[in-house]
Amino acid sequence: MSIQILQYEFLGPIPLEEWGPPMEKLVYLILSKDKDRFNVIYVGDCEKTDEKSFFVQHPQFKCWVKESGSEQSLHLAILPMFESSNEKRKNVLNKIVTRYKPPCSSDDISESKPDYVVRSSDDADPKPEIFSCPCCGSEMKAEQILEKCTVFRCIGCGLSDTKLNF
């Protein structure tokens, strides 16, 4: 059995009480079962554990029970990421937390960093080239200069284009 969250295929869910160690390099979901529906109440990651009491001793365990109504409603789903770095697992975790906003994960949300850097026009070494819009022939103005590319917008028709900064 599996459950899809965003583009990730998680194994499970299984009742949390049926879980047994070991666990290594994965992202896990704590779910609350409500009739035939599962609600994400916590998202976490694990480097490695052999502890049977890993979940029961978790600092958010009381929150999980409170949100689900009982320990019997708690379920676990896992996304094995054996070859992943800690950063890659945190990235998946942050995407899920941002999208689903699990009530017991609110303290764990870290500020995600974008994959790009926005620089002001003053920071750019060379001035962006001036060229004509391929659609209407009007001038294309630099709208945003990023680390590796510049976004241009036509002053006539509003068409946008992106050029790499060399």
Rank of each mutant, 00 (worst) to 15 (best):
106 S>N: 14
71 E>W: 00
121 S>R: 10
4 Q>G: 08
156 G>E: 04
64 W>F: 14
20 G>C: 06
2 S>F: 14
152 F>L: 00
132 S>D: 14
103 P>F: 02
60 Q>K: 13
151 V>Q: 07
49 T>W: 10
95 K>E: 11
147 E>Q: 15
73 S>D: 06
4 Q>A: 13
31 L>E: 03
126 P>W: 01
115 D>F: 05
13 P>W: 02
107 D>A: 10
72 Q>R: 14
88 K>R: 14
32 S>R: 08
94 N>G: 06
64 W>Q: 10
105 S>A: 07
53 S>I: 01
139 E>P: 03
1 M>A: 02
97 V>T: 08
50 D>M: 04
153 R>Y: 00
114 P>M: 08
119 R>M: 14
44 G>D: 02
95 K>Y: 03
142 A>D: 03
102 P>A: 00
85 S>C: 05
97 V>Y: 04
53 S>C: 00
128 P>L: 05
30 I>D: 01
135 C>F: 11
36 D>G: 04
25 K>H: 14
87 E>Q: 15
112 S>E: 12
17 E>R: 15
152 F>N: 02
131 F>K: 12
150 T>A: 02
31 L>C: 05
64 W>L: 05
6 L>V: 08
146 L>G: 08
96 I>C: 13
6 L>C: 09
67 E>G: 08
107 D>V: 04
136 C>W: 04
124 A>C: 15
33 K>Q: 11
70 S>Y: 00
148 K>Y: 00
66 K>C: 09
104 C>D: 11
47 E>T: 09
98 T>F: 03
47 E>F: 12
98 T>Y: 12
52 K>G: 00
6 L>F: 09
89 R>A: 03
42 Y>I: 07
125 D>T: 07
30 I>G: 02
53 S>M: 09
139 E>N: 03
65 V>L: 06
51 E>S: 15
30 I>E: 03
15 P>D: 11
45 D>V: 01
111 E>Q: 10
154 C>G: 04
